[in-house]
Design a protein around this nucleic acid. Structure first.
Lengths: 206, 206
DNA sequence: GCGCTTGTGTAGTCATGGTTACAAAAAGCC
DNA sequence: GGCTTTTTGTAACCATGACTACACAAGCGC
């Protein structure tokens, strides 16, 4: 239902940028940002470099658009899971379980596109990916802070750390079962950590 | 005290390979394998490419030697911590706490060289790094299996996942305090997971 | 000193990878 | 049908990066 105005004007495009973004998402997810070259992309799209740059500006630009599409499509739906009325520990456990499931769902495109993209070697692409992961971290922290302000940073740090680890383990080829095992183990500590008074980080200092 | 035999034979080296490995370790740890070029290395060593290749064979070869040096120098000493007579949960918690401390100790060289190296784009370098991380994972799994065979894989997966996450968080610049907070939180679940009967991975399947 | 061995310096090769100049093509507008 | 607009295809450019050919230098054994 993309409203398709009368007709743009000049020579019509020989390819569909939206469809290309889907192809790009698959390639970036399978091989990682750095390992996908512009040549790979143009070949997969069936176009030549000038069309690529006219449509997307740069490889990092395409990646930014791809990330936007990914979050609304295949990423962990944090805003849906972290409803304000939901028990905090339970909701966070669901986030971890959902991440495990999604990251291992497609063994050819394992892990989280944003988390993995945040570690690539291109500054622009990295920045785009980090913006997404930072937004996710903020969402988690604010969700916890609404009811447990003092535990928010710690719990958000923990959940994000485990998610990053899960994404890496998924990319190493670990099975869904093993990821789910880690996620469920990680979830067990959430309740306890919430109700722990004065838990401000020095418990392991001895 | 490196026994310095009579004299090697031909023209003497203008540089010390062992010292170069120390320099390489710093560079690789600071910037990551991919982001360090052979030109960077030769410049840092004060030599030219032919000397580099004569001494180390390839960039990945140097990295392999650097990793060996790293494990005996700055890596988490798993074999020392995971003594067979030690309570399992306590020992694993120490591993996590030690990782947090080490990964955040030097903000210019954050995270674990082996864990991060295992995600680089060069197949040979990746293989060398993965051999190390796999050995570490095996050490953890066998340590747990000695007393809790059924929990070994799950606990090893969990500890490794958190360590990978901690390394990533350290590289994002998170403070020592925050990493220690995550590590101590992650450590809280270990005891419970050990004593949980029939905990074989299906708890989150509903 | 002469040959042998080994390391060094100069100056490259070769591939890859992101990006672009330029002219031709394909449509709309009038 | 000409003018304008936008996209396309060919063919590059330019930088980087891993690696090497080759001749010379510097030590040892004799």
């Amino acid at each position: 239902m993309t409203t398709q105005a009368p007709r743009p004007r000049g020579r019509p495009r020989r390819f569909d940028p939206d469809q290309a973004i889907g192809t790009a998402q698959r390639l970036f997810h399978e091989r990682g940002y750095d390992a996908v070259s512009v040549a790979d992309l143009t070949e997969a799209f069936g176009i030549n470099p000038p069309s690529f740059y006219a449509a997307f500006g740069s490889k990092a630009g395409l990646f930014a658009r791809t990330l936007r599409h990914y979050t609304t499509t295949a990423g962990v739906p944090l805003s849906d899971i972290l409803r304000p009325d939901r028990p905090v520990a339970e909701a966070l456990a669901v986030v971890l379980a959902d991440a495990a499931r999604r990251y291992a769902a497609d063994s050819d495109a394992a892990g989280c596109l944003a988390i993995e993209g945040a570690r690539c070697n291109d500054p622009d692409a990295r920045k785009a990916a980090r913006a997404l992961t930072a937004a996710g971290e903020d969402t988690i922290r604010r969700f916890v802070a609404a009811t447990h302000p003092e535990a928010a940073e710690r719990l958000a740090d923990y959940v994000v750390t485990v998610m990053i680890g899960l994404s890496a383990m998924a990319r190493e080829g670990h099975s869904l079962d093993r990821l789910q095992g880690v996620a469920s183990m990680a979830g067990m500590v959430l309740e306890e950590a919430l109700t722990m008074p004065g838990f401000t980080g020095q418990t392991a200092s001895g």
